[in-house]
Amino acid sequence: MMRSFIPVPENSDFPIENLPYGVFLPPGASKPRAGTAIGTQVLDLKGLEECGLLGTSVFGGTTLNAFMAAGRPVWSTVRSRLQELLSEENAEFRDNGSLRRSLLFDQHTVQMVLPADIGDYTDFYSSKEHATNVGSLFRDPENALLPNWLHLPVGYHGRASSIVVSGADVKRPKGQSKPVDGVPGFGPSRLLDFELEVGFFTGPATAMGEAVSIDKAADHIFGFVLVN
């Protein structure tokens, strides 16, 4: 079992075995930086890279795009190196007090931002229960799920500009609605739909028209996020 020299609460989602990647603004900073969480701390990956402790050149920007594009061999190497640096048995980072003070931040003092430049995304209609519920709204509940849904993956493009980081304000959309009696009117939506979905960040890129087989999928799935 791996242990870190950084204290990690027993019920933490971010022990040394699970180091998530993100992008954050340190206190007083004007440009975001790549980071990872360990316990209740955020570790500055750009700073580690600039000190030569990672042996990479993928964290110089303000997003994780370059890192995601580097591919699984680099992802695995970086994760192994981070676990090595954070191990209670490794003195490289543990015994460098000035470096630790400059690169470790309490989570509550930083501001998280979108981790990537998102040019496009595909929304998959893949939950049988969700598809059945939606089908019941538009058709007879006895015919809620069309036969081809079980065989034809349904995917469609979403609006990438609508993706915001957790905690951001969401504006109520506007559109037409028709009262029981009267003519349709334009105004804010009276109801909002909340859904819990799993999102995938992928990389490296593929050529247009190139298919990725299921047995190669792990080489392209960088990470997971929760999406509403």
Rank of each mutant, 00 (worst) to 15 (best):
M2F: 10
R3C: 00
R3G: 02
S4D: 05
S4Q: 06
I6R: 01
N11M: 04
N11T: 06
S12M: 00
D13H: 01
P15R: 03
I16H: 01
N18W: 11
N18Y: 13
L19Q: 00
G22V: 01
V23P: 04
F24C: 08
P26R: 01
P27H: 02
P27Y: 02
P27A: 02
P27G: 01
G28L: 07
G28V: 02
S30E: 14
R33F: 06
G35H: 00
T36P: 00
A37R: 03
I38G: 00
G39H: 03
T40M: 01
Q41R: 12
D44Q: 02
L48W: 01
L48S: 02
E49P: 01
E50K: 11
C51M: 12
L53Q: 01
L54T: 04
G55I: 09
T56S: 14
V58F: 09
V58Q: 03
F59N: 05
G60V: 09
G61L: 04
G61F: 00
T62A: 13
T62H: 11
T63G: 03
L64K: 02
L64S: 04
N65W: 05
N65G: 05
A66I: 00
A66D: 15
A69M: 05
A69G: 06
G71A: 07
P73Q: 09
T77W: 10
V78T: 02
R79P: 00
R79D: 03
L82H: 01
Q83N: 05
Q83V: 00
E84P: 00
L85H: 07
E88V: 06
E89A: 11
E89Y: 10
E89V: 09
N90I: 06
A91P: 15
F93W: 10
D95F: 08
N96D: 15
G97S: 10
L99H: 04
R100F: 04
S102K: 14
S102V: 03
S102Q: 14
Q107S: 10
H108P: 03
H108I: 07
H108M: 08
V110I: 15
Q111V: 04
V113H: 09
L114N: 09
P115S: 12
A116Y: 04
I118C: 09
I118D: 12
G119C: 05
D120K: 13
Y121K: 02
T122V: 14
F124Y: 12
S127V: 04
S127A: 14
K128C: 02
H130T: 10
T132S: 14
N133A: 14
V134H: 06
R139H: 13
R139Y: 14
A144T: 04
A144G: 08
L145E: 13
L146W: 09
P147S: 00
L150T: 07
H157L: 10
R159S: 07
S162L: 15
I163H: 04
I163L: 15
I163D: 04
V165S: 12
V170I: 15
R172Q: 10
P173T: 08
K174F: 14
K174E: 15
G175C: 08
Q176C: 10
P179Q: 04
V180W: 15
V180N: 07
D181E: 13
G182R: 11
G182P: 07
G185E: 14
R190Y: 05
L191N: 13
L191V: 13
F194D: 03
F194Y: 14
F194H: 08
L196Q: 08
G199P: 06
T202V: 15
T206F: 10
A207L: 12
A207Q: 11
M208Q: 10
G209N: 07
A218K: 12
A218W: 13
V225Y: 11
